[in-house]
Design a protein around this nucleic acid. Structure first.
Length: 128
DNA sequence: ATTCTGACA
DNA sequence: TGTCAGCA
């Protein structure tokens, strides 16, 4: 993760700051938070701490709500987004695996060709 | 002073 | 959601 991403995801903002940044009441912020739509952190004294990404998320939730959605519907939106990203990661991992398999196969073929001095020396492993 | 949880009109 | 109580 880049430093920039780390900074944006660092939870350091207390409730009062989030209230000013979002123009929402503590009641509403806690409501979103307790609904699991925000990944707030807690201090040793049980105080909520939010990151800049959390602020963006809260503002986003607010917009969805203003457009008539209820919290359950908003939850579903992020739930589906989470599943999409999971599939994407799986696909990415798969492509990496394929790449390694091809890499190993190519290495084997090169080795076989080099050891077999009697074989046609014109053989060249093509792309896999 | 600030935030938290629980509860009720 | 607002608001108030009683804690930490």
């Amino acid at each position: 993760m880049s430093e920039k991403e780390l900074r944006r995801s660092l939870a350091v903002l207390p409730m009062g700051t989030v209230m000013k940044l979002t123009s929402l009441t503590a009641r509403q912020i806690r409501y979103y938070d307790d609904s699991g739509l925000v990944n707030s952190q807690r201090t040793e004294s049980n105080r909520r701490l939010y990151s800049l990404n959390d602020i963006d998320r809260i503002l986003e939730v607010k917009d969805y709500l203003d457009e008539g959605m209820n919290l359950e519907q908003v939850k579903r939106v992020y739930e589906k987004q989470r599943q999409r990203s999971l599939k994407k990661r799986a696909a990415k991992q798969q492509s990496v695996s394929d790449q390694k398999v091809r890499q190993y196969l190519r290495k084997d073929i090169l080795k076989a060709g080099g050891l077999d001095s009697n074989s046609d020396s014109q053989f060249r492993p093509g792309q896999l």
